[in-house]
Design a protein around this nucleic acid. Structure first.
Lengths: 157, 157
DNA sequence: TTTACAAGTTGTCATTTGCAACCTGTTTCC
DNA sequence: GGAAACAGGTTGCAAATGACAACTTGTAAA
């Protein structure tokens, strides 16, 4: 991405600009979603997302470059290539689900015939929430910024 | 955004494309972050983010249009305008924190002098996680898609 | 050994971004 | 009351990014 630089290079900044540097481009999250759904080949992503081939190529390369996905030629058919999530990629699941739940809460045309459930019990998962170390759910006004020993709520970044 | 349309209009789709339609553009999340940090005026956003004025104008208008922020002229100084988060905007906090935590976990130059804490106890908040209805933490492989009575793990969208 | 397929790359054109300059409606200061 | 300053924009233009279609390359199947 272009000029998040000023924010990006500031060492006192929070992790959001870094995350956006990697995932903030058009299609990145939808490619990630497809990967979570088991798609691994270039043509699969291409046909499922309807994304232009050069953009897909570019995005996959960027995701690989940033360690979110791994690229390796397929063993049995060396025409094919496999793109798979790394651990770093899997770690984006909470962020993706939080976005998705938000989209579903406020979206217009969303009737998700498919619902994410806890595989063990078959019940829907809980909404993604902010929690204290002891598990209490927290809202924005229950949060504060701490400066390495201090307490209070100064500006973030 | 341009051609997420095919995905967007499909009623069987999940909420992710909707969320990206609103928040997937450059700067949107950083504007949101600034709003969470108490910035309310055009010039505040402008100088904190270093974003071009026309883009800022456009993004704020889009966020207002999509119900994430509210725009109202300032009572006491009618030159000024206040942009404030709506409830819909506040509901993006988990998604934003999940992204931020991911960025901090894997980022290079991040030493967040400021840390988010539970205001009541002063301790750092827990990592944003996926949980079952009963509170158990879940990973990707503990999840399944349910189709309105069925059970299993077919394709998502 | 020809044909088909997967995964790109290249060329062209439309859209989006970034930058600077300008405009308009307050407010402040003298 | 009038001049200067300030907040929040808009406009015009250059540069970067995205979309679409056609072409290339390295396998594999027939």
């Amino acid at each position: 991405m272009g000029e998040l630089r000023e924010t990006f290079d500031n060492p006192a900044t929070c992790g959001l600009p870094q995350a956006l540097e990697v995932m903030g481009e058009r299609w990145s999250f939808l490619i990630l979603r497809a990967a979570f759904n088991g798609y691994v080949h270039f043509e699969d992503f291409s046909s499922q997302l309807g994304i232009a081939r050069n953009i897909l190529s570019n995005r996959l390369a960027r995701l690989v470059e940033n360690g979110v996905m791994e690229r390796k030629p397929c063993e049995h058919d060396r025409r094919k290539v496999e793109y798979r999530l790394t651990e770093k990629g899997y770690d984006l699941l909470p962020a993706m689900l939080a976005l998705r739940q938000w989209g579903e809460k406020y979206g217009q045309n969303v009737n998700p015939e498919l619902e994410l459930v806890d595989a063990e019990k078959g019940e829907p998962i809980a909404p993604i929430a902010i929690r204290a170390a002891d598990g209490r759910e927290l809202g924005w006004h229950d949060l504060a910024w701490k400066k390495r020993g201090e307490k209070g709520k100064p500006d973030c970044c």
